[in-house]
Design a protein around this nucleic acid. Sequence first.
DNA 1: ACAAGTGTCCTTTTT
DNA 2: GGACACTTGT
Length: 725
Amino acid sequence: MSAHLLENLNPEQRAAVTLPHESALILAGAGSGKTRVLTTRIVWLIQTGQVSPHGVLAVTFTNKAAKEMMTRISAMLPINTRGMWVGTFHGLANRLLRTHYREAGLPQSFQILDSQDQLSAIKRLMKAMNVDTEKYEPKKVQRFINSNKEAGHRARDAEAYDEYSMRLAELYEAYDAQCQREGVADFPELLLRAYELLYRNEPLRQHYQDRFRHILIDEFQDTNTLQYRWLKLFAGPHTALFAVGDDDQSIYAFRGANTANMAEFEREFAHGNVIKLEQNYRSHGHILTAANTLISQNAHRLGKNLWTAEGDGEPIRVFNAYSDQEEASFVVDEVRALNREGMNLSDMALLYRSNAQSRVLEHALFSASVPYRVYGGLRFFERQEVKHALAYLRLLTNPEDDGAFLRVVNFPTRGIGARTLEQLTDGAARAGMSLWQAACTGGGKVAGFAKLIEDIKQVTADLPLAEAIDHVIEASGLADYYRADKEGADRLENLNELVNAAALFSQETEENTYDATGEPAPGETESVRALDTFLAHAALEAGEHQAGAGHDALQLMTVHAAKGLEFHAVFITGLEESLFPHEQSANEESGLEEERRLMYVAITRARRRLYLSHAQSRMLHGQTRYSLPSRFLDELPEQVLLNLNRRSEPAYPSGGYHAPAPAPRSPQTGNDTGYKVGQSVAHAKFGTGIIIDFEGRGADARVQVKFRDVGTKWLALAYAKLSAA
DNA sequence: ACAAGTGTCCTTTTT
DNA sequence: GGACACTTGT
């Protein structure tokens, strides 16, 4: 049985899967079979009787990865995997807190705030405290709170050395008090609460440490400080930690991921028990060479070099476009050509650094009737109409939730305006009540709202989840509101979808094969528990980015979103200085290294064919910007590149992939110098740059040049020795 | 009380 | 270009 399991694994993979009961670090390069190793190890451990499903804790970062892992395990292991804890950090923390809510100091029906909810809670607090939001931007306050929580610091432990940060710490403290009062927890709070729960409660800690014999962590390079400490707390003296990660693919430092965790883990747990998976099963040789060469220019690495048994494959195609539009039409032409040759659109991906870049590409694809799918943007449970419905539901199960109250008290409009709410808020604060309580004791329109919620509560008390939600949508007036709205059809549709989602959710949790969000607690009111579990699910798993019409479509996404995916053909677009690497990251060494890792991730998504393109001019934020090619292009080995611009005609000005591009539309066209805006030039002293502006004629002519290394300068053409580059 | 108009700021993102 | 906050007008 287990011999069969280990077939088709290479020696390193097999060694990793069959490691003895010891902690180990698996450095798994891109495309090296990381997930396979992780899941096979779990199955192997169970099959060989070394652990029962009950003793396994497997942690991932995304719900998608957790589901994928569970699916693969169930496919290999025909036994009940219910006792296994597989989920995201937040999902598992939630599970722990729901089970031990009393010990954790939370109400049973505590609600989870997503980032949006958290931000509005902070704004509300700051308003109540009369804090100047110019001086203390709510977003910055949010970042302060979250980064402190993620470092394991409560307000009292927060580093505060000056007036400004001391004020931030005060806000943090007040914010936590508000959350406690309202019975809500934000994302980092889930982790910190769960951490503190186990840290302070010795018997509980003992219990879980004894239980989990094996802890396996996916994407370990993405863990933050708190998550690492969390894992250490779960690990008892008899627990083996199996951490899988790739420091070269760490692209989330900006949100707190701490790559140093890998080195630390090696020191604290693995003790030299490190296995490198370096054979890549995804990409052809030239693509890997490019990736290896690029990433070798990062100074801080654990060190790893991917290789493949495949041949070199095709060269990497580089295209220099005159404008973002030309870049887009180039991409469209290539995509169609590949599609004609038989490659599915869904096997091709268009990658970009930031979401704003997708529009030009979308426009070109749309005009050419190429089906495409964009990842990113609003997700199902984040849509305003869905959040409104959820707020009503939250109010039913947890009336202390002022955030939910304020969200829906006047939506649909009930004639309850700012003035009324101000009075209500003041009254509630003076009496030390929640808004809900204050509304119940008062009169007028606000009391009418309270009555409405009370009625809904009565009717839905014994209804199944989906029917309860359906009633809420009707009785609250949400449905009528969107029916009356000319543009409300989609929103109405989504509310319908919410009812369906709830029905599906009830069905799935009943079957209970996989339950990442809540432990069924015996003896509690059925429908209330179901509602709480569903609301937690909605917050923790915000749903798909877009309703997936499962047809063959080209895939558009940011490089971040592409991590973990692979495609036959990949287009990396917008390879320009200030865009990729992004200008806000390029200044710092660590920022630049992260951008380089991002580029590394992008390159290693490709199996057979890779296109790199950049545009000399680009519409961004309503302005045309001129940029130099990304330094990452220079960091690739020339022998694996194929410059498409040099196929038939000179590279400049249009690149001439197809029709020559129109002349630049600049008020200075038609000058007499032989230079134009957008052109790349070289200067003996300042290096290479690009002309971004122009003034004067003849002997007085001056050009403004944006140099890669020395910034932007005005140069008199009569004196500066410029040459075309 | 609320709709319509004006001004500001723009990474990346999962939970 | 577009989301979001804030101000003005009815």
